[in-house]
Design a protein around this nucleic acid. Structure first.
Lengths: 202, 202
DNA sequence: CGACCATTCGAACGTTCGTTCGGTAAGGAA
DNA sequence: TTCCTTACCGAACGAACGTTCGAATGGTCG
């Protein structure tokens, strides 16, 4: 009888568990023995699926980054106007973050834990992702270069990525509500007239 | 002749060097042997000043956090009005960050690398600092509880603290300019009417 | 002088780490 | 049956780690 679980599905399970452990106590303090305990697999058995601890981190980051990037491009596809597209990006990023907390925390917090070509590969994805947001920000006001869109893009990324230090998706604030608040904050600021007093222009 | 360097000043030098190394390659990957190389002191010699690697991290975080906290309270002392006080906080935080990059990166990035009473102590300082900013944000609009000031405060912290991943104080953007941009972004958003029609107010 | 203390160090100790080695068990193909 | 491949594991290896030990130095004080 053939094993009903494929190699890939079992690798994926290992990556999911590893992402949780990495997110919980950090990449470097996590030992392969801890992963073998958590995956209920022998220490040596893990090496049948990955070449080592670094590849584990690389695969987590590579798959996660590819997924956010593809998801963002999909979410932007049918956006109408610069502001709408930016809002869609924010909503997708926050939503993806909230539903893939461990992987995204590993992506954000262990960005420099790889080296060599693996780091270069992940940084390539990062550059594409940052460029995407910077373009969206720049498109907001084409003719008034008052502020560096790159700075604004990084500010927005900071706002969103920092949530791994304080936000709990199961708490009182839903990911959607958080995304809405972030979009409002970034577009209009804190002291923006709340929509309740009805400042809507259209 | 008495050594012109005091115990405290030499400890401070060790902490400065250690903060640089921790910021460069992370707390856990940094070895005591690397610190002994960087401080030009023997491996065992370091243990004359600190009890171990964890205390090194603790002292860096404790001193740095106490300094930002005290500095912020000083900066706020003679502020006029909620918006002005918030702007002063931002300016101080970004300015302090830029002039103490290594320590602040260690503070932000190694927030969970301590444990026990040391972690609890640092978290106590963090709570005071976060509470301070949340109060400033809440004071902006007393009577319209449209948005959770805690969320806005965390968003602002994310915006500011994330700079350790991309900002270089010696680059084209001065810390003052960055703080101005952040204040403008947080208060009015990206699409705020720029003061470009009359940028110079005085 | 001798006793003391602060400072520094080379060398080692014990532990833990990532990884590898050599093997077992089982299913499919011949 | 035999042979090959996949999946998995217990045990060990070598390296690196944080920390400690015992001693040396040099200045101060009595």
């Amino acid at each position: 009888m053939v094993d009903p679980l494929t190699f890939d599905s079992r690798l994926a399970r290992i990556l999911t568990v590893a992402a949780k452990v990495f997110a919980g106590k950090g990449f470097h303090p996590t030992t392969m023995r801890a992963l073998s305990r958590e995956t209920e697999m022998s220490l040596a058995g893990i090496y049948h699926y990955v070449s080592g601890k670094n590849e584990l981190l690389y695969l987590i980051q590579q798959r996660c980054f590819s997924a956010v990037l593809a998801g963002a491009e999909r979410a932007l596809a049918d956006g109408h106007g610069p502001a709408d597209r930016l809002e869609r990006f924010i909503r997708h990023h926050v939503g993806f973050f909230a539903s893939h907390m461990s992987e995204m925390k590993v992506l954000a917090h262990e960005a420099d834990s790889l080296d060599g070509v693996r780091l270069a590969d992940i940084n390539g994805l990062k550059r594409r992702y940052v460029d995407l947001l910077r373009t969206l920000v720049a498109d907001l006001d084409d003719n008034s270069p008052k502020g560096d869109p790159q700075v604004a893009a990084y500010a927005l990324f900071g706002m969103m990525n920092w949530i791994y230090t304080w936000y709990h998706p199961d708490g009182p604030i839903s990911p959607d509500a958080l995304a809405d608040r972030f979009a409002q904050l970034f577009l209009s600021g804190v002291i923006a007239p709340s929509p309740s007093t009805a400042p809507q222009g259209d």
